[in-house]
Write a protein that binds this DNA or RNA. Structure first.
Lengths: 207, 207
DNA sequence: ACCAGCAATCTACACCGTAGACTGCTCCGG
DNA sequence: CCGGAGCAGTCTACGGTGTAGATTGCTGGT
């Protein structure tokens, strides 16, 4: 497997995804953008799956490296924020983080940093694994919801929701009323969620 | 748009997904299973997207309805557990819950039940929206990670992780050592995570 | 001069979603 | 009894997909 131009091809794939969406990343379209024939790509990647995994690898490599001297909870914040920045910079490909496991070197290193931060925060050894999964699950879920439209879109058009069904079927929607309407400050919400999860970590650290 | 056989077709699509994976649910394959021509399906669905949305609708309709008289936090547990059961019963299609927003009636009703439970638990009105999103994001993320292999698979083969890089690059992995190895009891982990999130809700309710 | 190995190509296959035109059938109003 | 509306389903076709297999041309080493 040639490796020389792999990075260049992955770059082109990510650019293509940004411009036209992940679905537009076909071997043919990607080859055309690189002025190659589709089959030329198979010299660098075993197939499309391999290409997508390489994109995941690149994404994880872009994660910031928190200062090891910083307080552990701050390090976690840096990593979480980094994922979110990644999602904003590469919204089309960020779903791959969820759907394509893949244990690249970068992924393992990132997980290790989270483990270490949890340990330094005083979390008992037996709970480190679970809390790492809790944290990453939430962070990935949040950024994907945010970029993929599960949060925003018509999904949060509350007026039309209330119009869909009456107060009998949707008591809480009608009770909360306009409180649900204003557009949300997602930066603030992400921070608030993280703060809540930090209290979970601190509670675990006290036991 | 005919509606008579829609349910039957959605059933067939979900069965096909269970047997051969979501990718195998093509209009052609689905039509063949129903002994129809592909184009016959277009009498019942505007297109493939419409079919997938119908699957999401069916999934949400399968959510359990918690006893409105039960304590609010227990109601939340019933809903969360229901999503997880859904994921186990229909692992191939559960990703659609994340990637296809869609505001069906069933979806709005489910969200309203969560709002109501949070309100009943004493959460201030202004925080209900955020905590609903926090909860659903985590629950969906968890069940998808579980069924899609982000948790299990080779991803948790810790021995090979530690073999990948030395103690210098992965200090926490080596420090935790065999603690990370045993296969996890996901039922217990899900319950523990939910318990942690309940403390977050209770904290919000105290303010 | 030869040959190995590499980069890239061409052709071909089996699949995909779906637009558009069409057939046969059933049922209902005049 | 006839005509027509409407419905269920079919057929054909277009432009797309991933990729297997065989083939070309080039380049560097012996």
């Amino acid at each position: 497997m040639k490796t020389s131009r792999r990075d260049e091809i992955v770059d082109a794939a990510m650019a293509l995804a940004r411009e036209k969406g992940l679905d537009a990343v076909s071997m043919r379209a990607l080859a055309a953008r690189l002025e190659l024939t589709p089959m030329a790509l198979y010299g660098y990647f075993r197939g499309k799956d391999d290409l997508l995994d390489a994109i995941v690898g690149r994404l994880l490599g872009l994660l910031p490296e928190p200062d090891p001297a910083a307080p552990p909870l701050e390090r976690l914040g840096v990593l979480a924020g980094g994922v979110r920045v990644l999602a904003k910079d590469h919204p089309a490909v960020v779903t791959l983080l969820f759907t394509r496991p893949s244990v690249t070197e970068d992924a393992v290193v990132a997980v290790d940093r989270i483990y270490q931060a949890l340990l330094d925060a005083g979390v008992p050894d037996a709970q480190v694994g679970r809390l790492e999964r809790l944290l990453t699950t939430f962070v990935l879920g949040f950024v994907i919801s945010e970029t993929q439209g599960r949060f925003s879109e018509g999904n949060r058009d509350m007026r039309s929701r209330r119009a869909l069904l009456g107060p009998d079927e949707l008591p809480a929607h009608h009770r909360l009323g306009p409180l649900l309407d204003p557009q949300v400050d997602w930066d603030a919400e992400f921070d608030a969620d993280l703060a809540d999860l930090v209290t979970v970590i601190e509670r675990a650290a006290r036991t």
